[in-house]
Simulated scan of single mutants.
Amino acid sequence: MTVVRLGYVAMSMELQNASPSQTMTFTQFQKIRDREAAIRKLERIAISNLENTLRLLRHNAFSEIHFYRITSRLIPLANHEELLDWDYMKPLKKNLQEVGEFAKSNAIRIDFHPDHFVVINSAKKEVLKNSIKTLKLHYLLLKGMEIDPEHRCVLHVGGNYKETDKSLERFVDNWMLVPGPIQKMIMLENDDTSFTVDDTLYLCEKLGIPLVFDYHHHLAHNHNENWQDNWERITATWQNSPLPIKMHISSPKSEAEFRHHSNYVDIDMFFRFLNEMKGSVSQIDCMIEAKKKDQALFRLMEEVKKRTDVEIIDGSSFRLM
């Protein structure tokens, strides 16, 4: 039997005034003549984001949700080239510790998924440099939360540049420039346009990186439609991880806009996957990437409760029978 745990991304559709992604542009920053006052405002925004993250974690604990992706936009302008002298971690220490303590005490698995501009396989040195800098920020956030950073950060392979093989090998070459502690933080995900499961597995097996299987992406872009042929290899990439295997689940917005995420999860599509893989792993954590965030999770669980082939565990978890 396999235990399935559901999670959601960043924002809640249920909580009011709880955005963890409040921001300030550099243009807005420049308009504040007193630079120190501008930096203090940045710090207040970051603290507010962390306070709202803690609110979201409390909401998750109350709702029996054990899996949550924290936004990568907690600290506005953290790595801006004009603010490299700003020690942004120091004023956030208390708030980061509170977030980490709550997540750990309530057994909530948290992770990150940095934005698309983090590109390890870029041919441009400056892009790679900035990508590593952004990954270091995520590493410092996890350390500030006193959470083990291992396998807490999902990335796409990067740009294809119409040269799949060369782009994959460039990832391998650039990977050697990524500091070891940050390497251990990374998971790789197959995407919907550039790198299939087969492509991503090549890197994961070669470099010892867990593969986060995105079922929707696979249906949109694959060399081999039968994902089952690779499932044993996918699960094997997790054999040395301290965390259960993770996947992404979403549904197409429509046939015409297949790659776009729908508001909710199509339960029939989801269970086509689950019924094929059940029993192959003891637990799988499924991150819902739907427009309606936690509402999509709640709706999906209501539909799951009507099925006769599952055993409900709690508000976000069930066992496949």
Results as ranks from 00 to 15, higher is better:
H113N: 01
P149Q: 09
K94M: 08
D199C: 14
F102A: 05
M89I: 08
N160P: 05
I110P: 03
I209N: 00
L137P: 01
H151V: 08
H138L: 08
L84S: 12
I120W: 02
K94V: 04
H116P: 03
G180W: 13
E163V: 04
E101F: 03
S194F: 06
L140F: 08
M187N: 04
A103K: 06
Y161H: 13
L83P: 02
M187V: 00
E163A: 12
A123Q: 15
G100L: 03
V154N: 00
I209T: 01
V172W: 09
K184R: 15
F102G: 05
P181W: 08
K143I: 12
G158H: 14
E189A: 00
T164V: 12
G208Q: 08
H116K: 05
L84T: 06
A78D: 07
H138A: 09
D85F: 12
K166P: 06
F195L: 07
E189G: 05
Q183N: 12
I147R: 08
F102Q: 10
T196Q: 09
L207E: 10
F102T: 06
Y139E: 04
H156W: 12
N130K: 14
I120A: 09
D111G: 14
D148A: 05
N190M: 00
H113L: 02
M185D: 00
L188N: 05
P91H: 09
D192T: 14
